[in-house]
């Protein structure tokens, strides 16, 4: 257990509003090992994103707690990087200015950090575009810029909230490949929320299937492929891929009917 970087312990979340109470998450417990890629899959609106917000410290859970490196999460920390559904690069900032946004807000804009960011831009082919504005970049490049913005502050854990869902299918496959490579390259731990079963299998070491709202852990699947160099696209060609897909798909289906 010592190599666990994230522990989600008995987390529950009830939203309060004038119209009533929404029970979004109920008693969710799981842990993630350092360097692991874990996906949370579940039907739309099941409270997956809420769970991510709680792990990041944006939301306080009604019950339970989240531990990162054995410390309870009470607010956002620079150990955690969050990737949203769209890239949300700001039109009024150049790519470089966008990428350093997090450092700027955290007042960590040191020369070393700047050099690190420039290095990331170079490594991932965006250096020549650093003075361009986001609208001058393709969807894939924008997503890469968004990831570098997240990586700039040096987080150990990345939270991906349907991070590719705004892209068209072709771009999505390419970007998935791209982002997966970068995450593995930088040795980050990742927790991804998605409703796309194929995407979760192709990228993850483990897939956690959540029930419909209120979200509970339904089952956890270890994903193993035999290919020597693992990439999301290669995984999709693996004979085991279908097997995993069917198992998870059936589980989700049962819960949609229920």
């Amino acid at each position: 257990m010592s190599e666990d970087i994230v522990n989600v312990v008995g987390v529950g979340m009830k939203y309060q509003s004038p119209n009533g109470e929404i029970n979004a998450v109920e008693d969710v417990t799981f842990s993630v090992k350092r360097g692991e890629f874990v996906s949370l899959v579940g039907p739309s609106g099941c409270g997956k994103s809420t769970l991510l917000s709680i792990i990041s410290g944006l939301l306080k859970p009604s019950r339970g707690k989240v531990l990162i490196d054995n410390e309870e999460v009470v607010k956002t920390s620079d150990k955690v990087g969050y990737m949203l559904q769209k890239d949300y690069l700001f039109d009024w900032r150049t790519i470089y200015q966008n990428v350093i946004l997090g450092l700027e807000i955290r007042k960590m804009l040191t020369p070393e950090k700047k050099a690190y960011v420039l290095n990331l831009l170079k490594t991932y082919g965006l250096y020549d575009f650093k003075d361009k504005y986001p609208r001058q970049l393709s969807g894939g490049m924008r997503q890469r810029a968004a990831l570098i913005r997240t990586l700039a502050a040096g987080p150990e854990i990345l939270l991906l909230d349907e991070a590719f869902s705004a892209l068209d299918y072709q771009t999505r496959l390419a970007v998935t490949e791209d982002i997966y490579r970068i995450i593995k390259n930088e040795n980050k731990t990742a927790i991804m929320v998605t409703h796309d079963i194929s995407e979760s299998i192709s990228m993850s070491d483990r897939v956690i299937v959540l029930s419909k709202r209120p979200a509970r852990v339904n089952s956890i699947h270890e994903i193993r492929f035999d290919c020597p160099v693992r990439t999301p696209l290669k995984c999709r060609e693996d004979p085991n891929f279908r097997r995993y897909f069917n198992t998870i798909w059936k589980e989700l289906e049962v819960h949609v009917e229920a």
Binding site: S56, L58, K75, T76, S77, D78, V80, G81, Y82, L84, Q85, K86, Y88, F90, L101, G102, E104, I105, R106, A153
Partner: peptide
């Protein structure tokens, strides 16, 4: 855009920073 605000909040932005940055 709520999500643009959420983005800077993930970086730990306070209310003033939400205002000046977004």
């Amino acid at each position: 855009d709520e999500d643009q605000i959420k983005l800077v909040e993930t970086f730990g932005a306070n209310r003033l920073q939400v205002f000046t940055k977004v």
